[in-house]
Design a protein around this nucleic acid. Structure first.
Length: 608
DNA sequence: TTAGGGTTAG
């Protein structure tokens, strides 16, 4: 291709800056003033343009120009590999690497090519492809390159089941630099081993390796996942000492640390003190408030938009969770509309969050609509839908969905089994649930954890099969925790099983002293006429003080949320609340509800 | 005179 053709091609017109970077007008010769002069060979110019295309995400244009190049050197090939990877087209990058090796034997890969190819393998999470490249690295004698070594380390740290291979490789690196250390630490956090990450970080400091924003961010992340205040404070001191307070990723990690340990005052202070913020900063703060103060989460979201930051898929998944916690359907629908307006409705995580939000807001039909319209679904999508059905009493639908999921080729995990067990429990599908529990153990070889046993105890107990539930508790391979006894106590209470109920109540109190359990246990004694035991239990309960958090209910009326507690007489709109409550009681009595006065008879002291 | 490695929010 001639330089003239290249410059006149339509693709180039879209990127004048790239051309301008590669051309200049010769000042020394006035006769050439009006003639553009190519300062670089055509292949260099074309490679520059290809790079510009990738920077703008124009992958197809890059490929078309690359195909037009008559002489494609190793640099052009490497740009194609790294460019596709940076645009998230990892497989294309890999295919191009293979194409180069197979069809263009005159082009020899160098250390740049190998590090780019290794990054593509890492992004594909393909240890297999990475190992092939590793073999070629050795064959071509490129294993001495720092870049190649670090890229290999990253590959093994990300793709292998354990950190064993990465550690071996790390030990073999002679000149470990900051990137090597960061890659190792990031590998540990990737595997969920925060203590391993912090051990590596400590070792890095002991060996006086250069501390930079990358390594400190990842160390802060490790502290955040442990929730360690002391370590977090030490790292914050290191941040200040090294002057990283103006580094956005570092400060985002610090903000996340405070949010995760629920130190929201410090999080706010950290946020306010940040001179520069990005969308991650805002999303981190929104997520920090999501569980404990969902309303505040929505306020921060509004401020984010006012201050000119666009919400992204991360923002919306968090906001949808906040809306779900508040159970305000109209807000959820508004957020849904905003997601569509911004063209983000195709995102998997956003779809999953919408399923959950609609179910929590009471609209299971909309959950199903989102689920059915998703372009692709993952295990989380199916699980969210089943949890939704479970909470709406749709055991049959959950079971059908589970079978459909397995047919579609998705392998269930323990969480989805818990979802289906829970749905069966609430719909009274006891034998169906037991069948799935057996499938989980026999067919999928999953060892049930405490929580899963808790689901089965609940499944049996809720339906009145108290003895069977108790036998299961005794057969468990570990000693039952508080949640198991709690589920069993609930069943004993419902089915008025005095003997086992008293046992369960005592077991729960051994592990967790709470008012509700004392009330239930004392009521068992009262029902049995054991007034001495009743009084003793109540005395113990009083020692705790009234620590039980007040149960609150709320109603949404004319775009306002009205929050109230039992016996509430305050508030100007309380009459509305009682009117709505009266209607609700009327409706539920119509469908056969009989109020359970069993607790309230002996429950005057608890103030519930 | 074009190409390569590690960080932060679901």
């Amino acid at each position: 291709m001639s330089s003239r053709k290249l410059v006149s091609t339509t693709y180039c017109r879209q990127i004048p800056q790239a051309i301008m970077n590669s051309l200049y007008w010769t000042q020394s010769n006035p006769t050439h003033l009006s003639q553009p002069f190519l300062a670089k060979p055509p292949s260099v110019l074309a490679t520059n343009i290809i790079k510009s295309y990738f920077e703008r995400g124009q992958v197809d244009e890059a490929r078309m120009l690359f195909d037009e190049m008559p002489d494609r050197d190793v640099v052009a090939w490497t740009v194609m590999i790294s460019g596709n990877t940076s645009c998230n087209f990892y497989r294309r990058a890999w295919i191009i690497f293979c194409e180069m090796l197979r069809d263009y034997t005159d082009v020899e890969p160098n250390e740049y090519t190998f590090s780019s190819a290794l990054k593509a393998c890492k992004s594909m999470k393909s240890q297999f492809c990475g190992s092939l490249v590793h073999g070629l690295v050795l064959k071509y004698g490129m294993h001495g390159s720092m870049y190649v070594e670090n890229a290999l380390l990253d590959l093994y740290a990300t793709c292998c089941e354990t950190m064993e291979e990465a550690c071996l490789l790390f030990q073999e690196i002679n000149a470990k630099n900051a990137v090597s250390w960061t890659t190792l630490i990031a590998g540990y956090t990737h595997h969920g081993d925060a203590y391993g990450a912090l051990r590596a970080f400590r070792q890095m400091l002991l060996e006086a390796a250069e501390l930079n924003p990358f390594s400190i961010s990842i160390a802060v992340k490790a502290c955040a996942s442990i929730g360690s205040n002391i370590l977090g404070k030490q790292v914050h001191a290191a941040v200040v000492k090294h002057g990283f307070e103006s580094n956005i990723p570092v400060m985002n990690s610090m903000l996340d640390l405070y949010c995760r340990s629920n130190r929201l005052t410090e999080a706010d202070q950290c946020f306010q003190e940040m001179a520069e913020k990005d969308s991650i900063t805002w999303n981190t703060l929104i997520a920090g408030y999501e569980k404990s103060h969902p309303n505040e989460s929505l306020n921060i979201y509004s401020r984010m938009e006012l201050e000119g930051f666009s919400p992204n898929t991360f923002t919306f998944t968090t906001i949808l969770a906040a809306v779900g916690n508040l159970a305000v359907l109209t807000s959820g629908e508004q957020v849904h509309a905003e997601i569509i307006r911004r063209g983000l409705q195709g995102n998997l995580e956003v779809g999953n969050a919408q399923i959950d939000m609609y179910a929590k807001c009471g609209n299971i039909m909309s959950s199903r609509k989102v689920f059915d319209e998703m372009y692709s679904k993952d295990l989380v999508s199916w699980t969210s839908m089943m949890i939704g059905y479970g909470s709406h009493g749709g055991g049959k639908e959950a079971v059908e969905l589970f079978d459909e999921m397995v047919k579609s080729g998705i392998v269930p995990d323990q969480i989805v089994f818990m979802a289906v067990l829970n749905a069966c429990s609430h719909a009274g599908l006891v034998d169906e649930g037991l069948k799935y529990f057996k499938t989980m153990v026999d067919e999928y070889k999953l060892s049930p954890e405490q929580e899963t046993y808790g689901c089965v105890v609940d499944l049996l107990g809720r339906s009145g099969r108290i003895e069977e539930a108790y036998e299961l508790i005794q057969r468990m391979p570990f000693s039952p925790d508080e949640s198991i006894w709690g589920a069993f106590l609930g069943a004993c209470k419902t089915h008025k099983h005095q003997v086992l109920g008293k046992l369960a109540g005592s077991k729960v109190l051994e592990m967790r002293q709470d008012i509700a359990t004392y009330v239930t246990l004392s009521n068992f004694y009262a029902a049995d006429g054991k007034w001495g035991e009743f009084a003793r239990t109540r005395r113990l309960m009083r020692r705790l003080g009234n620590k039980k958090e007040t149960g609150r209910s709320w109603l949404e009326l004319q775009n306002q949320i009205y929050c109230f507690v039992a016996g509430d007489k305050l508030g100007s709109h309380i009459e509305w609340v009682y009117q709505v409550l009266g209607m609700l009681i009327h409706h539920i009595k119509d469908v056969g509800y009989v109020p359970d006065l069993d607790c309230s008879v002996h429950d005057l002291e608890a103030g519930t």
